[in-house]
């Protein structure tokens, strides 16, 4: 592994709501180098919450604590809002799940990409437009000139997601957090989007955090996998070794997947062990 881009130690996130405190993330530790790190788990396991804490995207009701939360040489916990703004979207950016909801419906998609660039660079609008067009070509959009002037409802899901990727990569970040970037897409389109991500990651020496609930996808796409359950990391394993996963939760998730090649009369259902909450 090359230089460490992100270091997280004992990250906890609490939400306070109507006098009740709920612990969404508990003692999560990991480091990210130049690699593709997957965070998998069921809904509610806290995987997106981890991603959001890195960019300080939580509402004020959230309390984020950690022993270490470091991005390159910046302490993310101590950083001022201004410092975070200089990082967010520029040096570390996040790709959201569904382009239908994440793109502004009344602004042309090209303008939205250019806007991301302009937010962090003092350049003439014309130059931002040039860069946005380049970026659209980079994510394999065939006719950038035409697509630049489309509105989000005029593009398909796969194209929308590639536009989101273009928007997040145009500022040349070092770390990208992708929050279920392909779960709203068809299998055939999913490949395209993953190809684009893969290309960008290897071309630009990026660190990628790939949040997903799809173990099969992660197994082939990522280098390392963190498995989360109820706010904790229960297992950290190389993606290639997932078959040898030791934690019963990981094994249960793998077994519950229906498979094209091995038909079974009934699928084994995950048996949850209360012990896992404290493990």
């Amino acid at each position: 592994m090359t230089e460490i881009k992100l270091a997280v130690q004992d990250l906890c996130v609490e939400f306070r709501n109507a006098g009740k405190t709920s612990l969404a993330v508990r003692d999560v530790s990991f480091t990210l180098g130049r690699e593709k790190l997957a965070i998998v788990g069921e809904s509610g396991s806290g995987k997106s919450t981890v991603g959001r804490s890195l960019l300080r995207l939580h509402p004020p009701t959230a309390r984020v604590t950690a022993k270490t939360l470091r991005f390159a040489d910046i302490d993310l916990l101590a950083a001022s809002e201004k410092q975070i703004q200089a990082i967010r979207g520029a040096r570390m950016s996040m790709i959201m799940q569904d382009p239908k909801y994440s793109l502004n419906p009344v602004v042309r998609v090209g303008e939205q990409i250019a806007e991301a660039y302009l937010a962090h660079h003092k350049v003439p609008h014309r130059e931002a437009r040039e860069r946005a067009l380049d970026m659209l070509a980079k994510v394999h959009i065939r006719d950038p000139q035409r697509v630049y002037d489309l509105y989000p409802h005029e593009v398909s899901g796969g194209m929308g997601q590639r536009i989101m990727i273009a928007m997040m990569v145009i500022t040349d970040p070092q770390v990208i957090i992708a929050d279920e970037p392909t779960s709203a897409l068809d299998v055939s389109v999913r490949r395209q989007v993953l190809n684009v991500l893969e290309e960008l990651v290897s071309e630009r020496d990026l660190g990628l955090i790939f949040i997903s609930h799809d173990l099969n996808l992660v197994r082939h796409f990522c280098d390392r996998v963190l498995v989360m359950y109820a706010g904790r990391v229960v297992e950290s394993i190389a993606a290639a070794d997932l078959d040898q996963a030791s934690h019963p939760y990981t094994r249960g998730l793998l077994a519950a997947l229906p498979s094209l090649d091995h038909r079974r009369a009934t699928l084994p259902v995950l048996q949850r062990d209360p012990q896992w909450l404290n493990a």
């Binding site: 069921e42 809904s43 068809d186 299998v187 609930h213 799809d214 173990l215 249960g252 998730l253 519950a256 997947l257 229906p258 009369a265 009934t266 699928l267 084994p268 259902v269 995950l270």
Partner: peptide, 29 residues
Amino acid sequence: DVSVQAEILNLLADLRRQEGLTYLMVTHD
């Protein structure tokens, strides 16, 4: 989620067997 998907798929398979139902299912998976 995949873990819940397994439960629902099992339920659908059981119900079809018990009730003799006919299914027409749309999916991309």
